[in-house]
Design a protein around this nucleic acid. Sequence first.
DNA 1: AACTTTTTAGCACAAACGTGCTGGAACCGT
DNA 2: ACGGTTCCAGCACGTTTGTGCTAAAAAGTT
Lengths: 208, 208
Amino acid sequence: MPKIVDAEARRQDVVEAVFRIIASDGLERASLREVADEAGLAVGSVRHYFASSDELLVHSFSVVVDRIAGRLEEAFTVVESLAVGSAEHDAAVLTLLGQFLPLDEELAVDACVWMAFRHAARIRPVLEQEAARSHRAVAAVVGRLVMRLMPDGGSVQERLVSEAERLLATLDGLSMHALLQPEWMTAEVCRDVLTAHLETLVAVPSNR
Amino acid sequence: MPKIVDAEARRQDVVEAVFRIIASDGLERASLREVADEAGLAVGSVRHYFASSDELLVHSFSVVVDRIAGRLEEAFTVVESLAVGSAEHDAAVLTLLGQFLPLDEELAVDACVWMAFRHAARIRPVLEQEAARSHRAVAAVVGRLVMRLMPDGGSVQERLVSEAERLLATLDGLSMHALLQPEWMTAEVCRDVLTAHLETLVAVPSNR
DNA sequence: AACTTTTTAGCACAAACGTGCTGGAACCGT
DNA sequence: ACGGTTCCAGCACGTTTGTGCTAAAAAGTT
């Protein structure tokens, strides 16, 4: 039999090389040659594990989507295990929302890569499917969270979707600003914005 | 003397070709040859008006920034001319915030181009300056608007910046979702999100 | 009509890209 | 020891890119 190499682990190495390149030089520099160099391989070797450049990028996209969705699900189970309104619950919610933001090195790379792929998916049809999957996964968690936090339990369908979208937009906007204008955006401002938003979520059902 | 051509108008034609290409095929396809084709010119002609590809892109960026900043300033003077709290005032505020969103064809192209350049500026140093200018211009208008709308007139400096950032993040997030996931994002949801946000802005000063 | 200067068009080159293809290296089961 | 299979490396080809350079076309002034 042949040389035994853990193919899946090798693929993962290559994917992480892709992540590093996207984070530092952008998606357009993630060519086969650059990726191979970054991974310490030859172009032919990378192409042994990924049939084409498109397959490499699509797979990389799916990996980052899985990572983010996994973190969100995990953080949400923590939230579910706590009593609504308790201090621990509020902290867990903030932790959950913090998964969207580039608060440490690993989160920053993921946020950066995720953002790059989502924007690329607008143009490149091969990425469309993963982009839709990513949107569904994130919207599901945010939707459940909003349902849990809203005073009336999100009984009004119409208001639920608009509040979910409002939270999601704020999160993506914050993440984007933190990536693009880091000099104007501190972790403290992020936290303040999130807590302010949460107050507006649990507070006013008011008229409407 | 030579053939007389309105050089500035020609430059503007080329810039608009750049916009169309970015909106439909992304920034990475905005090469000199593609732009020349789209503008109905030869590569050499485009290069007569723009010394290099970088200069063309930087100038295009500055044009879209000027366009957006101009619309915002204009809409803000309308807001300033009305009494705070009146129905016309609220409508004018919504109109102002709507300038960020791809609500019609022209706004969509601008939002798309603006988004593309801002993300590219993370990587390409030539675009850095314009990105910073764009951020300052937009943050200034949003900051003044928040100061005008907040119940205490935005007297608490710290809360003012976090509320301004919160509004800005929501706007950019909404715009991004409208561009990337148009199928999940209707103009109605956009409006609902904005009105909901405005209610949270004028409502609770609360504790803190 | 001739001249001058702007405008337009295009060629040529090096660099980088994806990909089809070939050949050697490494390694496991026999 | 020795095949057979997998893994690794790289060449070669056709495209596309930015840019330096040349030269024809166009048009107002003399």
